[in-house]
Each structure stands twice: as C-alpha cells, then as structure tokens.
C-alpha cells in the first residue's frame, strides 16, 4: 500500500513538473495575446491581423488606400484562372474541398492522424491535383502554387482561424513548431520570438515589429515596391536568411510544424488574404 502511494505521488510530481515546463497550446496563445494587450492596450484584438500596420495610423491609412484598388489584382486573377481551370478529368479544385473551397483555409494546417504529419493548405491543393491526375506544384514556386493560393485563400476571407491541436501526435508537431519559434538561429543569434515577442511594436530597421497573434491570417501577401508574392513559408525562409541562417525547405516538415504552431496562435482572428505588406 505504502509502495503504491509512493509511486502515485512520484507520478503526480512528474506530471506536474512536465506541465510546468510546457504550456498548453491554449495557455501559450492566451499568454501571447495578454502580453500584447498589456503593452498596447489601445490596439483592439481584431486589429492584430494588421500586424505592424496596427502600430502606425499613417501606414494603415496608406494600406487602406492601396487596398481600395490593389495594384496586384491581375496577379490574383491569374490565381483565379488556375483555380477555375478544370483538370483533364473535368473536375476542379472546388470539388476537392467542402463548400467549394469557401471558408476552409482557416482550418489549415491540421494534424493528420493517418499520415502522422501536419497538412498545410498548399499540401491539400497538391493532394487535390494528385487525386485528379495532375503533377504537384512546387510549394516554393510563386508562379504556380503562390498564385493559386493567392486566389484560393481569398475564398476564406472573414473566416476565423480555427486550428486544432488534439492528440499526442498533434501536440508533438505543435511543440516542434514552438521549439523552432523560440530557438535562436543564424549568425545574428535571433529567434522568431526575439523580434515578435520580446520586442513587439518596437522599430527595427525603420519598420515596426508585428505581434505574434494575427501573423498568419493574411498570407500570401504582395510585398514591397514590386509587389513580390510571398507565401507564409517563403516569408519564414526570408526571415531565416535575414538572421543569416540557411533556410529550411519550403513545404518541409520544419516549416510545416512552425506554421501549425504559428497559426494556432492566431486562432479567433479573421483571415484576409492577398494583401499588401511592406
């Protein structure tokens, strides 16, 4: 009896210490939202989707002017043509998704228990192509996958991000993404969190640093003076290069897990894709 009590006590202590070391996904999300709310109480939660623009009324006004007549609209139209062009068997992308592809992107990425890995929206689009006899697009190719998502994600504009982390496999993938986010990398010795948690709202190289919650809601984006198309994972790659780390493969497991963690932290915020960002 004594031995059983002792063992149960030890197990309880182990469970407690493991819990203390690692926050639950929801606790992590709440902590990050509360930290931004405490530092910037005047910025509304729903405005977190504007990222760095939320810190500068001037920049946000310029953004809104530009979005009234987006100069990159013809690029989104190219994506629409890709989306609407039937496969050789006559089926379309819309046939691969519930609701014809409307209000689905906020459910991605998700953890697939059968495949034992995270599935991103881009992977689902490629799966749709494969199921209909078409070769997959390279996820880093902005002229195919980039344009396709630039339109396909707009079909989910307004949907609230709704990422779920359930089960041990999903939690492991989430933890892997969290580890990536908080791990220092590159010669500059920065983690993603160094900028977007520790110094959120401060200015680095003339730009405000955006807050973590809301960051995944507006991709792909058209960036800079030439409106270069960037998917979220292309942005990860560029960020890694900025801190002088060799980037991971776009569409690879590391970035997929990072996107899973990252997207969960935007839960409850509305999607607005294919927008302008500096």
């Amino acid at each position: 009896m004594k031995q059983t009590t002792w063992m149960l006590t030890c197990l309880g202590m182990l469970a407690f210490s493991a819990d203390a070391l690692s926050l639950s996904p929801e606790q992590e999300r709440l902590n990050r939202v509360q930290a931004v709310q405490q530092k910037y109480p005047d910025i509304k939660f729903e405005d977190y989707v504007y990222g760095a623009l939320a810190f500068s009324p001037d920049a946000k006004a310029q953004y809104e002017n530009m979005m009234a007549f987006p100069p990159f609209e013809s690029e989104i139209d190219k994506g629409r043509q890709l989306w609407e062009t039937p496969f050789n068997n006559g089926k379309r992308y819309a046939d691969c998704f519930p609701g014809g592809g409307r209000n689905v992107a906020g459910n991605y990425p998700y953890y697939d228990e059968t495949m034992k890995k995270v599935v991103t929206f881009e992977m689902a689009l490629n799966q749709c192509r494969a199921n209909n006899g078409a070769a997959p697009y390279k996820q880093a190719d902005m002229n195919t996958m980039g344009l396709l998502t630039a339109y396909a994600r707009t079909l989910s504009d307004g949907m609230l991000m709704n990422i779920k982390v359930k089960g041990s496999g999903a939690l492991a993938a989430f933890e892997s993404g969290r580890h990536f986010f908080y791990q220092r990398r590159g010669q500059l010795n920065f983690s993603c969190a160094s900028c977007h948690v520790d110094h959120v709202g401060e200015i680095l190289r003339t730009e405000y640093l955006s807050m973590l919650p809301g960051q995944t809601t507006h991709w792909p984006a058209f960036r800079g003076g030439d409106y270069a198309l960037f998917t979220l994972q292309r942005r990860y790659s560029a960020c890694n290069q900025l801190v002088r780390a060799v980037p991971m493969e776009i569409g690879g497991e590391e970035y997929n897990n990072l996107e899973y963690f990252h997207s969960y932290l935007s839960n409850g915020l509305p999607l607005k894709s294919s927008v302008f960002r500096k």
Binding site: Q183, R185, N189, S191
Partner: peptide, 17 residues
C-alpha cells in the same frame, strides 16, 4: 561558423514563458 551554429542549436530557447 559551422561549429557555432551547432552549439547555438543546443542552446536555451528565448522567452518561452
């Protein structure tokens, strides 16, 4: 630089809590 990169990967995480 390769050695520093590997050492960095084993280093502590930033601001997790």
């Amino acid at each position: 630089q390769a050695s520093l990169g590997m050492a960095q990967a084993d280093g502590p995480l930033t601001s997790q809590h």
